[in-house]
Design a protein around this nucleic acid. Sequence first.
RNA 1: GGGUCGGUGGUCUAGUGGUUAUGACGCUGCCCUUACAAGGCAGAGAUCGCAAGUUCAAUUCUUGCCCGACCCACCA
Length: 808
Amino acid sequence: MVIMMESKYDPKLVEKKWQKFWADNQIYKFNTESEKPVFSIDTPPPTVSGGMHLGHALSYTHADFIARFWRMMGYNVFYPFGFDDNGLATERLVEKKINMNSSDMTREEFIKLCLEKTKEAEKELKRQFTLIGLSVDWSINYRTISDYCRKISQLSFLRLYKMGRVYQKETPFMWCPKCHTAIAQAELEDVEQATFFNDIIFETEDGEKLVISTTRPELLPACVAVFVHPEDERYKDYVGKKVIVPLFGHKVSILKDERVDPEKGTGIVMCCTFGDQTDMEWYQAHNLPLRIAITETGKMTKISGKYEGLKIEEARKKILEDLKNKKLLVKQTPITHSVNVHERCGTPIEFLVTKQWFIKYLDLKKELIKRAKEINWYPKHMKARYDHWINGLQWDWCISRQRYFGVPFPLWYCKKCGSVILADEEQLPVDPLRDRPNRKCKCGSDEFIPEKDVLDTWATSSLTPQITLKWGSDFFNKNFPMSLRPQAHDIITLWAFNTIVKSILHENKIPWKNIMISGHALDTYGKKMSKSKGNVIKPEDVINKYSVDCLRFWASQSKLGEDLPFMEKDLVTGQKFSIKLWNAARFILSHIKGKRTEKPEKIRPIDSWILTKLNKQIKKITKMFKNYNYSGACHETVQFFWHDVCDNYLEMIKDRVYNKENYEEWEIQSAYFTLYKLLLTILKMMAPFMPHITEEIYHNYFSERENKKSIHISRWPSIDETLSNLEAEEAGNLAVDIISSVRKYKTKNNISMNAPLNKIIINCKKTEEDVLKLVVKDIKTTAKANSIEFGPASKITTENFGMTLNIE
RNA sequence: GGGUCGGUGGUCUAGUGGUUAUGACGCUGCCCUUACAAGGCAGAGAUCGCAAGUUCAAUUCUUGCCCGACCCACCA
């Protein structure tokens, strides 16, 4: 059945219709029976922590362009979709939803609520992600908190443990006092903060005064030493002496160390356990005592005496006040410096001594950089970010979190001897808080203490290839490494890096053959979108105002890896393109419907011209897609369609389709064939970008002709070299130049394009004349000239490309 | 401080070792031409960040500098 094309395109109706059609007909379902080559995509599972934002729309659409291209190239596309629904971000969302804190209830109650609420949130997220027309196979779905994913994640832990890659250690480590958990290096963020450099008087045992500058006076109770630079003449005599810590009265030694910057402050620095990383280095290097001033919840400890129980900020204020009163605070210099904060909550991190689980990988730095070369990085330079990150790594991967909603560690501790009892692989997934080990401890005891910590969420999401391909299955073995990891650049150091780590450790292989890195969506002024700035744009609003295809068209405008500002004008351009495509299709289809469109024996030169160009475009665009250059592919398709096809070719064939009596049968055939080929090819090349409108037009005619249920499972256009004709191409190019001169002439003289001309005399080289003769009739009819002659022009009307024209 | 990317008409951008540097938005003029007025056609508008170098030739390659964005480090 062929549907009539409405004169106006209505995306609201059409887009809904096809989205339902694709779902009902399982157009994007992965075919497990198929012999076709597989193209597998390691789709990012969005964190369940809020709604979908424009950045999601951007990068997920990019992946979809690629998926659709390879599907049309004849690949069996494995395109799963999961949700990352555990960890801090998800806990936060749930707390917000129920307007309660996790500490207001028992752990079990909280986890139960999390499971319920994430399910709701995921339903909504799925709706939003479906809206943008992704060609994912929704039947391959996963949740990182599901039993299945827990099992994979715990299995990974057990195997790494048995490989000796996992260790537990009590050590000063990065801690978020707000979230009450250890965090990893990759979860840090820098924030510029205004503070004071406080000059505080310390007295030596013999009453001499030394001034020390600090931004963190609340750490005075944790002061364990004072350092000066070994070369610093000012303080040489003090080294080895003791100073009394003001307000707190304990005595600490004055020591020397190269790491002191004599230029900074007074050149004397106090070392506290622990203010920052250097403190930790000094603590180890000089074998200093441990004085802990801050608790896990960010409050002052007992050693801070009367300040005990105060929050860090409060203590700082109070201590400064007291110092001032005692005339020990000599100066306060306002400064701004950057502070490491936890990216999730913005709280400055502390270094606390806690017992944590780690995956050992610092020894693999070189290997990780080397092996990642086996992956094709698109764009190439993103590999540098990965390398740079690894070079700067200073800690092994801390995988334990003191949180609740996450994958539990599959282990217990023996109550009697303290040894670690691992779960059996067959037992997974386990929850040590609920389950028991399968056997007694070696010491004979059968009393166990469960590990209460949960795994870092990245420890699970770094296993997405193992999760989606089913670790250990034939399918996994056949399809690992996956074809493509698409993701945005912000999580190269997290998701991409961690996945590579796990893949190298478990499989000794890279996880994917290709990685494609997208940029971020920015606001109109090129600034990051954030709730606090109030510049967040929701994809759904854009879709409601324009259309899904327009949103996707906007996304196609960003060069791979580059951030893209949200520009309303790009949406308008997409809309205009839709209208143009719709109208061109209406025009073409109104002429070729019901006509023969097979390749005729002879092709008119002007048709050969556009067909030659078409071949070149197919070649170029296909190559661009293979290189993940979707923006170039879209750009080229649009340019070709708009300017070559619409502006020129369609105008040139109007006479043939409207005044058939002036042409021979084969000439008309040649036009029909060319129009068919042009429209079909352009639809297909635009299909990855604008899947809805192209599907609508395809179903208006081509679907039946090609016997395909959907354009998205039709074959990608191929090149037919027998249609290329270089001489005709040259002739067509000259014709376009001449017609453009004629248009300029008509515009200059304020006459309508349709107005007839008496005569055009073309004065050109003989060689050009021979070529032009191939298309002279097309020029004549397009320019509406009564006659065209070659020869010296008596009067030069217009000059162009070395040719002169006389237009009368 | 280190790294990466970018700097092209008023704005946003494509692209290239070689005639006249792409397109979009905006602006101006013309045209209701049987696909398209949310359109078509045409026009104005760019010393391609600055300086030096390589080259017969540089907006394109190299180096330095300036500016911006992002990442990382430092952060007493």
